[in-house]
């Protein structure tokens, strides 16, 4: 949280680094000690006392936060971190105490953390969340999607207003594959399914097991790939695997800048396997005041796909810090602090 000041100059950093290296062994140890008591890290085991003793304990779940603080979390990909910063900074601008829990992991992990109250606000994508909760749902509108989610959501959780901004998962093929099988941006996943036996599909490891992944591709489109290659959530592993053709198709986010840069082709999804994917905060009911809810909804009202594309571009291509990008955008729409 220190680096959001102004862009600091190189020499100052270097000097700081040099001084620090000199003092490392003693001073840094002490600094680290005092810092850990107040930092965001979860204390160990004892916290499970709030989670009830009867439930079998999930070792990968975290601990509950201090009361009075809103914990905003993110999944383990860049856009989720940006969204965490956008929503979190908007809360801060209203004078609300915010604690960040970035890069937690996949939805499989974050959902559990919001449910047990250790994360209060998580920027979600409505269709992807619904598919995680209900494999068979196929809503036809944003409102129906929200309703369907609420029906399946844990009673302690609720969805706030969806934003217009959309970022779907997609099945995207590389340029070689598109040329080889004559696939264009008008082609569908079903067209790829015809040659499925020759295709290696890549995606984040959980893509292999979740509905919006191999199981859904099989049940909706009859696509059974030759094999699956575990990569990352639309990150550099995915992009380089597509580029060097070690996978022919992969799960890429539709806002990803690499699609145009590398001439990847995103296949149409007429059966809406990847459904709607509007940004929509999932929150724990107990953790938010009406003011906080209003602040979050105000952000969603302004956030459109163009804004999301621009912020992703600034972070991934221009290498700006996500927090700076989030603050700049909030200021530009009049929600900054």
């Amino acid at each position: 949280m220190t680096s959001h000041s102004q862009s600091s100059t190189g020499p100052r950093h270097l000097r700081a680094a040099a001084i620090l290296l000199a003092a490392t062994t003693a001073a840094a140890l002490l600094a680290g000690c005092s810092d850990s008591s107040s930092s965001s890290d979860t204390p160990n085991g004892s916290a499970s006392s709030t989670g009830g003793k009867s439930k079998p304990k999930d070792p990968l779940a975290g601990a509950a936060p201090k009361s009075g603080t809103v914990v905003v979390g993110s999944n383990n990909f860049a856009e989720s971190v940006v969204l965490m910063d956008v929503y979190g900074e908007a809360l801060k601008a209203k004078g609300i105490n915010v604690q960040y829990k970035p890069d937690i992991g996949t939805r499989e992990i974050t959902y559990g953390l919001v449910k047990n109250g250790s994360v209060t606000v998580l920027p979600e994508y409505n269709g992807s969340l619904l598919s995680y909760l209900d494999k068979t749902a196929a809503p036809t509108s944003i409102e129906a999607t929200t309703a369907a989610i609420e029906a399946k959501l844990d009673p302690s959780l609720t969805m706030l207003d969806p934003a217009a901004a959309e970022d779907k998962d997609s099945l995207t093929v590389n340029a070689q594959t598109a040329a080889k099988y004559h696939l264009t941006s008008q082609s569908t996943i079903a067209d790829l399914a015809k040659v499925g036996g020759q295709i290696v599909v890549g995606g984040s490891p959980e893509f292999q097991k979740r509905q919006q992944g191999l199981p859904g591709l099989k049940s909706q489109y009859g696509l059974t790939p030759k094999s699956f290659k575990p990569l990352d959530a639309g990150g550099p592993l995915t992009v380089s695997a597509l580029k060097d053709n070690s996978v022919q198709a992969a799960d890429v986010f539709t806002t990803d800048a690499s699609i145009t840069r590398e001439k990847f082709v995103t296949l149409q999804d007429p059966k809406k396997l990847f459904g709607f994917a509007n940004v929509q905060p999932m929150v724990s009911k107990a953790g938010l005041t009406p003011d906080a809810v209003a602040a979050l909804n105000a952000v969603s009202a302004k956030l459109d796909t163009q804004a999301l594309l621009s912020m992703d571009d600034q972070v991934q291509n221009q290498k700006k810090d996500p927090l700076d990008v989030a603050q700049a955008w909030l200021k530009s729409v009049g929600l900054g602090g």
Partner: peptide
């Protein structure tokens, strides 16, 4: 962690899939 195989696959996939 860079998409190759080996026994580490179970650990990395399990962490992603929340499958302890």
């Amino acid at each position: 962690t860079v998409s190759l195989g080996g026994l580490g696959r179970f650990v990395v996939d399990g962490l992603y899939q929340q499958n302890y």
